[in-house]
Simulated scan of single mutants.
Amino acid sequence: MSTQTLDRAIGLLHLLAAAPQGCRLVDLQRQTGLTKPTVHRILETLCQHQMAAQDPASRRYRLGPEIALLAGAVAPPPYDLREVCADHMIEVAQRSGDTSFLTVRSGFDAVCIDRQSGPYPVKAFTVDVGTRRPLGVGAGGIMLLAMLDEEDRAGVYKATRQALPAGGAVTMKAIVAAVEEARRQGHAYSDGLVLGGVRGLAVPILAPDGKAVAALSLAAIRDRITRQRIPQLLSILKTHAASIEQRLRAATPAARR
């Protein structure tokens, strides 16, 4: 199997993971930009190895049982990221009054793995825990994308461009501009890139090796994230991100040595 074919197969697995209801062949073809015979051939191989499965009634493709077996064989990580961040997620929401999010990268997607709400009565629940969306959509996804090197960013841009709905409110031009701004500023800002009238801020959480392991973000209605209030909110985010990074270093054996 060539590297290109392997990349395509992994991309299809990510799309299947994002659609528990299953995907039609035509949907997978549209989202990947590949030809129908190519997608069908890769899916057939994945099905042969039980990494994908096709429902005989709906003809939709889903992840296969081999994925669960492989996942069960994975060595546990040195820390549970959500557990390490739990107290800080609550503190960020309480101190800001708004909604905090913890986002990680999964292939070409950003996945929300935790969300906490603050005391301000008007909430900005832009995504639920477990929600996947293309990297670059939302402050957390912008931050994670900004932390990638140029080659990886180019690959993500290509996948995101294909995943965005035609004629939607979010454009690649807006995503690229937000990512470049995040690279310059060291934090991400989103204004309506998820939901109209909602703004977001995000900072990276770095693993001991210096790579971004997650993004810590806040979302609120537009009037809550004003130019005057942004420095205060960024201070909250950066303080807690630094504390989380300290915990990660303490929890990582290699870093302790």
Rank of each mutant, 00 (worst) to 15 (best):
M89L: 15
T239P: 00
G130I: 04
G22A: 09
T35L: 12
S96A: 12
G33V: 11
V129A: 07
S96N: 02
V104G: 01
L206R: 13
P253A: 13
P37D: 06
F125R: 10
L234Q: 10
A177Y: 08
A241H: 02
H88R: 07
L70G: 09
S235C: 10
A159P: 02
A18K: 04
A110T: 10
A19R: 08
R30P: 01
L144M: 06
I236H: 01
P76A: 15
E44T: 14
I221P: 02
E83L: 13
I67F: 09
A166D: 11
G168E: 11
P20S: 06
M89K: 01
L237C: 01
Q232L: 13
R257V: 10
H240N: 10
G130P: 07
A242D: 13
Y61F: 15
S243F: 10
R153L: 04
Q29I: 12
G138Q: 07
R82C: 13
Q94M: 10
F108I: 10
V92P: 03
A75T: 14
A75K: 13
I67V: 15
F125Q: 10
A242F: 12
R256K: 13
K36F: 09
D128W: 02
Q116H: 11
R222G: 10
Y61M: 04
D128S: 07
C85L: 01
A52W: 08
V74K: 12
R8T: 03
Q185C: 12
L102C: 08
Q54I: 07
M147R: 05
G140C: 07
A254T: 14
G11C: 02
Q162G: 05
V176F: 04
V194H: 07
T226Y: 06
T32M: 07
V92L: 11
H187E: 11
E181T: 12
T103I: 14
A19P: 05
A17P: 04
T160L: 01
I244C: 00
I244W: 01
G72A: 14
I205H: 01
R184E: 14
Q29L: 11
A251H: 05
T103G: 02
A86K: 15
D55H: 14
P204V: 03
S2K: 06
V156F: 02
L148C: 09
D149N: 15
M1N: 06
Q162R: 15
A75R: 14
L195F: 05
V26G: 05
T38W: 09
V129K: 08
A242I: 05
A177D: 15
V84Q: 03
V170R: 04
G64Y: 14
L28M: 15
S217I: 03
P56A: 04
L248W: 11
V104L: 10
T38M: 13
G200M: 06
H88F: 12
L145F: 08
A169M: 13
D87K: 09
Q48F: 10
L145M: 13
C23P: 00
R224T: 07
K123Y: 06
P204F: 06
Q162S: 12
